[in-house]
Design a protein around this nucleic acid. Sequence first.
DNA 1: TCGTTTATATTCATAGGGAGTATAGCAGGC
DNA 2: GCCTGCTATACTCCCTATGAATATAAACGA
Lengths: 122, 122
Amino acid sequence: MPRATPPPGSFLPLTPVVFEILLSLAAGPRHGYSIMQEVETRSRGAVRLRAGSLYRALARLLDDAIVEELDGRPAADLDDERRRYYRLTRLGQRVAAAESRRLVRQIGVARSRRLLRQEDEG
Amino acid sequence: MPRATPPPGSFLPLTPVVFEILLSLAAGPRHGYSIMQEVETRSRGAVRLRAGSLYRALARLLDDAIVEELDGRPAADLDDERRRYYRLTRLGQRVAAAESRRLVRQIGVARSRRLLRQEDEG
DNA sequence: TCGTTTATATTCATAGGGAGTATAGCAGGC
DNA sequence: GCCTGCTATACTCCCTATGAATATAAACGA
């Protein structure tokens, strides 16, 4: 019998590294190395995702069924057999959404306590 | 000669616990125990700040000059001599502001990747 | 007086991340 | 072919941060 799915809220709060990984996968399946590059580029160096942190975090996320590995391969001419592709599971999407809502609330508090100027308010 | 003040960005990303503490102090000075209560209430239990985490985080924040202890005491009839009051330093405000902007950008990404519904958008 | 809440602090165990290293496949230049 | 550098996954060592539990003691209310 499969383990009961824990409620998304029980994984919160996510560490900054883990949330960056989930954000990266929210755009579609990716392999590990490209997650690393995308996070580095997107956060403009604010969060540097090291190889060690990434692959251990991915192992944990697989274990928690937040992320799963794809069976299929891309078209042979685009493929690199060393790659392993990952995507968010349904649970993973819910966890990422719940964390996003938590951060939205936090930003609301930051705003009301004058930590953000008007032009910072996305 | 005092240590040169490090740039606010060098403290990023903050751990969820640390950002909650800074958010709490952004509203004004507080003593440790009341930070714990405020975080628990405000985040509706999503982030449970334990005594151990709180006081060790405060010690680190004092050491990094992100938080400082108040000399003065409140009026004697409101005081409890066991309490130690903390407030954000100028650096602390800048660090909290920088982290807030980082989260605003993350939320923008989460939104564009359909992790948030319209009514979640604060 | 006694139990509960407030308040700070410490210890122990574990999770998580940074830096560095290992291994190996791939791609381009020569 | 060979060398070099980049891509890709993975592991180790070390340190930091958090959770859980406990200690201590003052304040408070029945």
